[in-house]
Amino acid sequence: MLLLTCPCCGVTAEETEFSNGGEAHLKRFGPGSTDAEYEAYMFARKNPRGVHFERWRHAYGCGKWFLMARDTMTLEVYGTYKAQTTEPPADIVDKIKARRPEWEGYK
C-alpha cells in the first residue's frame, strides 16, 4: 500500500486516504476539436512500465487534487506537486533523469 505526501496539506499518509484519478497533464478537447483530438483526450492513455504522471485526490484529508510522478515498476515516488501545474516541475524531472537515464521524457 502506497505512502503518499499531499503537497496541499503536507500530510504523509497511506493510500486509503487518497483516490486515484488516472493520468495527469491531459489537455481537454471540447467542441470544435477533431475526432483524433477528442480520442486522445478521452481514451488514449499511457500505460508505461516505468515513469508515470498521475492525478490523486486527498479524498479523506484536505480534499485537494495533486499530481504525482511514480514508477509503476518499482513504485518509487519521484515527487508530488500541485494540480495547478501544466507540466512536471524541473526538480522532479531532474530526479527522474538521475534515477532513469533512459527515460524518454513525459510527453
Binding site: 496539506c9 500530510v11 499518509a13 486509503t16 486516504e17 479524498a59 479523506y60 484529508g61 484536505c62
Partner: peptide, 9 residues
C-alpha cells in the same frame, strides 16, 4: 488531522 475513522471521513 483530517483522515478517516474506520470507513468514513
Amino acid at each position: 488531522r483530517r483522515s478517516r475513522v474506520a470507513q468514513v471521513a
